[in-house]
Amino acid sequence: MSSFTASFAVRAYIAVAAVGLTAPIIGSFLVQRRLALIGDGIGHLAFAGVAIGVALSIAPVCGALATAILGALALERLRTKGRIAGDLALAFVFYGALASALVLLSLRHRLDASAIGVLFGNPYVASWNDVITIVVLCAVVVATIVPFYPQLLAVALDEETARAAGLPVDALNLLTVTLTALLVAAGMRVVGLLLIASLLVIPIAAGSRLAHSFRRTISWGVAFGIASCIGGLLFALGQGNVHPGGTMVLAAIAGFVAAAFAGRRAARRHPRQTGS
């Protein structure tokens, strides 16, 4: 049986496609609000959650999910209350969570390849239970965004005007970071906690080079997200000994470069006329 059609590969296709589809949707609101790196911070938090899960002998994904959500909510509160600058808050979270995870894992003598593996992910080792968990988490993220899309977009476009219009801005911001935490937990097994944030950002950045509206940018972002995940996975499967997490992210970057080139060509062919 070819490695492309083996059962582990089929599970990997489903898992990475679910993450590739979902990440740009939630990523669009983060990028628009210039919070592109918050996914990275939540990834570091989730690593601390994995360590807590190991220390308490519970499933790492449960520890990651709980820590990512609680940490994301705390991070958003720090940011909105203005007690600490956004980038400074992220830095504390980045390094504090990573350091805590290393200390906890080493104290439990579990600082081994499997623990370090969640930083970079490996879709080949995903079981059917993992795949179901990933698909369910991604479905929850998408199913939550759909009804709240107009409100989330209004806040992403102009937070002050949304607040002035009576929208529950704080609650919608908390919803955004909570959904980001769900996506990070979903993607940690297949893409890794250090690389999952790239799928929140790069496909949307690529889509923004081709689209003229928010909705179109998301559509293009989803297409780039799925294509880069599946394309990167196929390349890694074909090579045999290349890490698929890396190839998926590099495929996303290649997609961005292609989109930027195509967008500039289109702009030169069809320059827009504007008046005063």
Binding site: R34, A162, A164, I204, S208
Partner: peptide, 28 residues
């Protein structure tokens, strides 16, 4: 209340169409 703030407050990371901005006024 219909509110138009001074200057363009819409941030610029992602393209947004004119009708999407106007539709946001109906969201509340």
């Amino acid at each position: 209340i219909g509110y138009a703030p001074q200057g363009l407050r819409v941030v610029t990371s992602i393209p947004v169409s004119v009708d999407e901005v106007v539709t946001a006024g109906l969201t509340p």
